[in-house]
Deep mutational scan, measured.
Amino acid sequence: ENLWTTASTFIVLFLLSLFYSTTVTLFKVK
Rank of each mutant, 00 (worst) to 15 (best):
A7Q: 10
V12L: 12
K30N: 10
F19C: 11
L15G: 07
F27N: 02
T25S: 07
K30A: 09
S8P: 06
I11L: 09
F10G: 04
T6D: 06
T6F: 11
F10H: 00
L26D: 00
V24M: 08
I11W: 08
Y20F: 07
I11M: 11
Y20I: 03
T23C: 12
T23N: 05
T25E: 01
T6K: 03
L3W: 07
T25P: 01
K28E: 00
L3P: 15
F14T: 07
F19Y: 05
L26A: 09
E1F: 08
T9C: 14
K28M: 08
I11C: 13
F14M: 00
T22M: 15
T23V: 15
L3E: 13
L15K: 01
L18V: 13
S8R: 12
N2H: 13
S17W: 01
Y20T: 04
F14D: 02
T23I: 12
K28F: 10
S21I: 06
F14G: 03
L15W: 10
Y20M: 02
K28P: 06
L3K: 07
L26M: 11
T25Y: 03
F19G: 10
A7C: 14
S8A: 14
K28I: 10
F14K: 03
F14W: 07
L18E: 02
N2S: 14
F14R: 01
K30E: 08
L3Y: 09
L13R: 01
T25Q: 04
F14I: 03
S21Y: 05
F19I: 15
F10V: 07
T22E: 04
V12F: 13
F27C: 08
T5G: 11
W4T: 12
T6Q: 09
T6R: 03
T5R: 10
V12T: 10
F27I: 12
K28L: 12
A7F: 06
K30C: 09
V24K: 01
F10S: 09
S21N: 06
I11V: 12
S21A: 14
K30W: 11
W4F: 13
V29H: 09
T22I: 13
A7Y: 07
F10N: 00
K30M: 10
T6E: 06
L26S: 04
Y20W: 10
T23D: 00
S21M: 01
T9Y: 06
E1A: 10
L3T: 14
T23F: 13
F14S: 04
S21F: 03
Y20R: 00
L15H: 03
Y20A: 04
L3F: 05
L13V: 03
L16R: 01
F27R: 06
L16N: 04
L26R: 02
S21H: 02
L26V: 12
F27G: 04
T25M: 10
S17L: 14
F19L: 13
L26C: 09
S21G: 13
F14Q: 01
V12Y: 08
Y20E: 00
L3D: 15
S21P: 04
S17Y: 04
T6M: 12
T23E: 03
S8C: 15
T25I: 12
T22R: 01
T9F: 09
T25W: 06
L13Q: 01
L18N: 01
S17D: 01
T22C: 09
T9P: 01
F10C: 08
L15C: 10
L26W: 13
L13S: 03
T6G: 06
V29S: 09
L18Q: 00
V24R: 02
K30P: 06
L26N: 02
N2M: 11
S8T: 15
V12S: 07
V24C: 07
F10A: 09
I11Q: 10
I11P: 04
I11D: 05
S8F: 14
S17K: 05
T23W: 09
F19P: 01
S8Q: 15
V29Q: 09
F10L: 05
L16P: 02
N2I: 08
S8V: 15
S21R: 01
K30L: 13
I11E: 00
K30R: 14
K28G: 06
I11N: 05
F27T: 08
S17A: 13
F19W: 10
E1W: 08
S17I: 11
V29E: 03
F14P: 04
S21T: 10
E1I: 07
N2G: 12
V12G: 11
L15D: 03
T5S: 13
S17T: 10
T5C: 15
L13H: 01
F19E: 02
T23G: 12
K28C: 08
T23L: 14
A7E: 13
S17M: 15
F10Y: 12
Y20L: 04
T9V: 14
F27V: 11
S17V: 11
L26Y: 11
V24W: 00
T22K: 04
A7N: 11
T25N: 03
F27K: 05
S8L: 15
N2P: 10
T23Q: 03
Y20K: 03
T25D: 02
Y20H: 06
T5N: 12
A7R: 06
L13N: 02
T23H: 07
K28W: 12
V12A: 11
L16D: 02
A7H: 07
T22W: 05
L16V: 11
T5F: 15
S8N: 13
L13A: 05
L15P: 05
A7V: 07
K30T: 10
L15I: 14
V12R: 00
S21Q: 00
I11Y: 06
T25F: 08
T25K: 02
V24D: 01
S8H: 15
L16E: 01
S8G: 13
K30F: 11
T22G: 11
F27Q: 05
V29N: 07
S17P: 00
L15E: 05
S8D: 10
L3A: 14
K28Q: 07
S21K: 02
S17H: 01
T6S: 07
L16T: 05
K28V: 09
E1C: 07
K28N: 06
K28A: 08
T6I: 14
T23Y: 14
L15M: 13
E1M: 07
K28S: 06
V12M: 05
W4I: 08
L3G: 13
W4Y: 15
T9A: 12
L13W: 04
K30G: 11
T22F: 15
L26G: 04
S21V: 08
N2E: 14
T5K: 03
W4L: 10
V24S: 00
T23M: 14
F10T: 06
S8Y: 14
L13I: 02
F27S: 07
A7K: 06
